[in-house]
Amino acid sequence: MKKILVADDEMSIRLLYSEELKEEGYEVYLAANGREALEIVDKVPLDLVILDIKMPEMDGIEALRQIKEKQPDLPVLLSTAYGEYRQDFATWASDEYLVKSSDLEDLKAAVKRYLKE
């Protein structure tokens, strides 16, 4: 079973994403900020990471940089309410930049694409 980490400071989003991804048959790990996300990345052999950008303690951009340093091959998707971070060079390290939508089909399609399913 593929392991996916979802990092988002909004509890409702974490819940929605984990429910949807579990339903798709993935094992879902959750983190409320970048620091928690990195701890899980260190402990668990993950297949994919979904990062929010605006988070307390450590934001998604910093978390993305550290994850790509440790595991360059681990696909990281940015899922954010902000379109404008697309212009931030730091976000270019991500594999996909997605603007959050209540319709999760785009997100799920991207996950499937990176997990080569």
Partner: peptide
């Protein structure tokens, strides 16, 4: 964010 949750 809340919209995404509500809609989702």
């Amino acid at each position: 964010n809340p919209l995404v949750s509500i809609g989702g």
